[in-house]
Design a protein around this nucleic acid. Sequence first.
DNA 1: AATCGCCATACTTTTTAGGTATGGGACGAA
DNA 2: TTCGTCCCATACCTAAAAAGTATGGCGATT
Lengths: 300, 300
Amino acid sequence: MDFRQLRYFLAIAEAGQITRAAKALNMEQPPLSRQLKQMERELGVTLFDRSGKQLTLTHAGEVLRERAESVIRQLHESLQEVKEVEEGVSGFLAIGAVVSCVSLLPRAIERYREKYPQVTFKISEGDHYQLGEALAKRSIELVVARLPFEFAEESPYEYDELRLPSDPFVAVIPSKLQPDQKQSSITLAALADYPFLTLKTDQTIGMHKQVMSEFRKSGLTPNIICECSSVAIILSLVAAGIGATVLPKSVVAMSPIDSLRMLRIEDAEFQSEVGIVWLKDRYLSKSARHFIEQYTDGYE
Amino acid sequence: MDFRQLRYFLAIAEAGQITRAAKALNMEQPPLSRQLKQMERELGVTLFDRSGKQLTLTHAGEVLRERAESVIRQLHESLQEVKEVEEGVSGFLAIGAVVSCVSLLPRAIERYREKYPQVTFKISEGDHYQLGEALAKRSIELVVARLPFEFAEESPYEYDELRLPSDPFVAVIPSKLQPDQKQSSITLAALADYPFLTLKTDQTIGMHKQVMSEFRKSGLTPNIICECSSVAIILSLVAAGIGATVLPKSVVAMSPIDSLRMLRIEDAEFQSEVGIVWLKDRYLSKSARHFIEQYTDGYE
DNA sequence: AATCGCCATACTTTTTAGGTATGGGACGAA
DNA sequence: TTCGTCCCATACCTAAAAAGTATGGCGATT
């Protein structure tokens, strides 16, 4: 039994005769007769009562008609949906982001959804190691992360990337420990006097290294009193007056808290490179490609 | 798009590779490869990510997988249902019966439903004329009626019949007009003394004729005071003491009323032939054939 | 009775699916 | 690195199935 035969059957049922149905199907009458007969033989069922002048459906025929219509409609809808998924106007897009880049997502997603409102998102948050695994497992397609993306060691994967506008590092200090409330910038040296908090885990030390190397360039060594695994923790510690830290501007801008100050770093123009990362030479869904285009269109 | 292709696709998705799927499908790998490719081309969609060692579904592929499973399952259920309808284990059976035969239905339907509990009934009641029309229109398939079945004049239809055990005519008289309460039979002559009620309409006069001819054989002419169109009316008139009548035994047995007596007619063994009637050379559903078998098995 | 419309059958052509042979790319072991 | 293995893709051939053509029969209509 195949779809063609179902369509034939429905055409015959509608026309009430084979000849006219054949015309409607742009074919000749004998093949259609044969297909109907074969269908009846396969099913072991009489679908039409041929004794009268007009072909009329038997009970079984009526049941088949209803069912066939439903099945064919469902098939068409399904295929339509599949096509739309491919075109990226439907379906879902699974992406990941490192904690410090989560703030870059909302605007992009907002813009994306204006264009493709049917696409839903699945967003995972994690460190580079976890996200690398997720990419490999294909549970996510894209990662928004600080560059360079740190795959697990010995990972066989390569990645492509799209660099996004880089994000300057800023100093974050507790309001109550700020000497001059009008100040909007600070020197590395002044910053190094604060007890220092840093964002670092066993798996992800990229940002930590970058910041430390900046201090080292100026011959400074911050007094690290805490390694934190999340932005939320580090900001709450700063807000509580425990110490100061250095973070990408976007991260801090995301959660404005009265009790902390964000200051430009005067004597070091160092920035965090941010980018979208995906596996090289692998299938990328249309949705994912559209998401990437979202950024290239906006910035290039 | 074809069911075959959907099944192929599902097999590949399940196996995770084409070669193994081909084995499972009892076919070679190249044709399967080709079908998959053709399917992707038709849909304009990439269904599998081939870059890795293992084929993995793309989003579109996942969507198709879900949908295809559902569609195929639906199709199978539908075909199953159609077959069951044909086998007469499901669906419905539309039959008709003349008023005087309604009493023969309950037991047959009961027996039938023991065997085919999924079959539902549509029962119409009417006179021969109406039922003949219904047969012609195919709104019913069988009729249970007194024989011979009286088609409308000029009707082009022929019918087949199955004779059922015939039903002896009995006299029905009001209790209060019965001379001897112990009596269980009556002669035609005695009966002819009662005011007579008869079941007769413009369309159906078969039974009336039969009863009258029986009286005539004995040189008697009943005094007909009322022609009634329904059993209910005639019995209530008898019960009220208006007069007597002659009816098939089964009709009277169906509604035992204290105020009337059913007596065997001593000097005339005449019976009402009863049968199932259907159009000759027309499609008869399995359900209908089973219904007929119900009687042949039981009585022959 | 003759004609028309419709279905069925026999036969032919065309299309399409399936099979065989073979080569290339990826992965793993030596 | 190289070789062997596994898997997919392509080219080519065969087989099956569907569509087309011609024609005959049956019932309904005039």
